[in-house]
Every structure is written in C-alpha cells, then in structure tokens.
C-alpha cells in the first residue's frame, strides 16, 4: 500500500500529513485534524452527513480519498462562523428550528452554502432540489427549507447593505 505526503487547506489553514492511499477524506478530517463536526452517517454514499466543500463545491467526503484532495481547499462546518458570529445559515437553522437531533445539520449547512453560492435567491423547489442529497430523519425538511430561506434573505440584505 502506498503512502503519500499531502497538504490540504482546511478552513483556510494548511495541514500536511503522510497518509495511506486508502484513507478517506472524512477520516482525515475527523481523526487526523480532530474536526468532528463533519459526521459519518450511512457510510454508503447515501446520506450526505459528511458533506464538505472542496474548492467551493459540495461533495461527500466519505466517497473521496484524502490523497485526492491534495492541494485542494476544503471547507467544513467549523469554518462557517467568523469571529464568534454565526453564519447566516447557522443563524437560520437556530431561528427557524432547522434541526432536532442535529446529526444531518453540518452536511445540510455545507450543501446549502454551495447552493446559495450558485443561486443566491432560490425558490422553495430549488432549495428542496439543492438539499436532495442530504437526508434528515427528524424535521420532515420544512424547517430546514425555512432556515435556508432565512439565510438567503439575510445574505442578500447584507449584500445590499455592503
């Protein structure tokens, strides 16, 4: 089995490590970097709990090897809040009760972040479509959709204000 020297930027900080070829990106994030906000749900590429952004695009980090992310910029849920201020998406999940058990939430947040970066003013249908790779067994999704709508509005207001 081959070993590889990799450097991955996670939430803006470079991390270098020697990894086995078979180490999955989600295990690198959780075990090597101790960033346990990225969850492992199904282990079968079905649930989206492990969603992170790679160069700005939402992907399932359980279905990529760490060595493939060498040189990439990875964003996880830990990088969302800035200076102790919740990101508007996090605030939306708080205000609109977008979670119950919270297990799917980090993945939902990252998928929603990618969605809003492509489409800042999505319709309800587009939001449901955008998070269709993320499973939630508690909320029935309605509150998650409302949370993302809240964030979309707030981000647009911030844009106008700026």
């Amino acid at each position: 089995m081959s070993k590889h020297s990799i450097t991955i930027s996670v939430n803006g900080t470079d991390h270098s490590a020697e990894v086995d070829s078979r180490l999955l990106l989600v295990h690198f994030i959780r075990e090597n970097l101790d960033l346990t906000g990225t969850h492992i749900g199904c282990d079968t590429t079905s649930c989206g709990a492990c969603t992170v952004l790679i160069n700005g695009r939402a992907v399932k980090s359980c279905t990529m090897f760490a060595v493939q992310a060498n040189g990439a910029e990875v964003d996880t849920v830990e990088g969302m809040a800035e200076g102790g201020q919740l990101h508007p998406l996090q605030e939306g999940f708080w205000e609109k009760h977008g979670l119950q058990c919270g297990y799917c939430t980090p993945g939902m947040l990252m998928s929603a972040k990618h969605l809003l970066s492509k489409n800042p003013n999505p319709t309800e249908d587009e939001i449901r479509w955008g998070i269709s790779g993320n499973l939630c067994r508690c909320t029935g999704y309605n509150k998650i959709v409302e949370a993302i709508q809240y964030a979309a509005e707030k981000l647009q207001q911030e844009e106008v204000a700026a």
């Binding site: 590429t45 989206g48 969603t51 695009r57 939402a58 992907v59 399932k60 279905t63 990529m64 998928s111 990618h114 479509w129 955008g130 269709s132 790779g133 993320n134």
Partner: peptide, 9 residues
Amino acid sequence: IADPLVRNL
C-alpha cells in the same frame, strides 16, 4: 443521476 452531491464528482 444520483443526487446533487454525487453529481459534483
């Protein structure tokens, strides 16, 4: 095809 996250890769 699959879901939006899978389609990104």
